[in-house]
Nucleic acid binder design. Structure first.
Lengths: 204, 204
DNA sequence: AGATTGACATACATGCAGTATGTATATTTA
DNA sequence: TAAATATACATACTGCATGTATGTCAATCT
């Protein structure tokens, strides 16, 4: 007899799919906070699983290891940034506006607590620049190159190899986000970025 | 009796000062190569002392720990870069030339094997940006700000907060050095940097 | 219903950073 | 110059973290 769910016993039957999702979410979520607060090297797996209320066995069942869990965190953050930017991108009146708007959307997205550290410090250090670039491209972080290509095609940018230029500009964006995150004057950095963009584009 | 150094015994008497210097040099030198090749986290102290032909006891006698040894490596590298740049700096004909020359000297100095990784990846990740800035300033890495200040004072740069601008430009320099180190087209990046500098300066 | 897979939990093996302690040599002091 | 002390290590030990091997129970497939 014994119905599979009496009012007192609550021995609820949980499907594997949701179980897995809950555990993975708990791990990624707990890991994100700890990695963001203390960094990758200074955060141990015992601490992570304790915060997530699971065991280390669960962690190693769902992820190949600590680094793989970190990668999942980074991918989620990169995804969130890409979504925030593409959501806020409207019809740009010009290449200049597109770049400025994109920069501001980027800074806003990067202002989420801990995100700058995760994506710009621990990410590259732990996964390497190569894999970070792969993740960025996979989540859709090619706006900068597109913006510069648009500008070049419309005569607003002298014909130069735009990929190195986009790379350098991207580095400046990252540094600005980091500086703002570190408490520097946000307006000063946004202005400086705008200045760089304007300088690079031809005057009309 | 027994002369303190027979021809066969060679029981040479070594003063503590030189002994210390030899050991420290051997440690810093061995650590530099290993950190440069495999990174800070992937290099263990047993491996370092083996390469340096000393024991871990010696390491912990001369340095507070693995991180302190790494810091010594980084300081030496930063010092070397600063020296290389200041040595090559001649009388600049203009702010533009000074910045371009400085950039090229920087890229040349950063092309020393392993240096880009040490100073631009593992350094910031292990010691933090704040301490890296401290080290840069201590070794004399203020050329960029000086160059921009000179340009502003001579009307070649619109009056804007130059510190954020110098910071962003410095980030671009770093990224370029990293890209070149990773095997990207060095000329393309040098050109892109020159383009950025020219763009930022007023046309004459 | 029985067999199999999935989702863990637990125990274990290994390696490393850091510390405590012991020893021989160099340096200082009486 | 002989004794006292400080220096420069070498060795042994501790604690912790990552990763692996194995065992168990519930969910799912046949």
């Amino acid at each position: 007899m014994a119905a599979s769910g009496s009012a007192t016993e609550q021995k609820q039957r949980i499907p594997n799919a949701t179980r897995t999702e809950r555990t993975r979410t708990a791990l990624v979520s707990a890991a994100r906070e700890l990695f963001a607060a203390k960094g990758f090297a200074e955060t141990g797996t015992p601490e992570i699983v304790k915060a997530a209320r699971v065991t280390r066995g669960a962690l190693y069942h769902h992820f190949e290891g600590k680094t793989a869990l970190f990668r999942a965190v980074i991918e989620a953050e990169a995804e969130a940034v890409a979504r925030a930017i593409e959501t806020r991108t409207t019809e740009p009146a010009s290449a200049r506006d597109a770049l400025i708007d994109g920069a501001n959307a980027f800074f806003d997205a990067m202002s989420v607590s801990g995100r700058a550290r995760l994506l710009l410090i621990d990410g590259p250090a732990t996964l390497g620049h190569e894999e970070m670039n792969r993740i960025d491209r996979a989540t859709g972080g090619a706006e900068l190159i597109e913006g510069l290509a648009y500008a070049r095609d419309h005569g607003e940018l002298r014909d130069l190899p735009i990929e190195p230029l986009a790379d350098l500009l991207s580095a400046a964006f990252d540094r600005a986000a980091l500086a703002i995150d570190a408490g520097e004057d946000a307006e000063a950095y946004r202005t400086a970025i705008a200045r760089m963009i304007d300088a690079l584009l031809e005057r009309h």
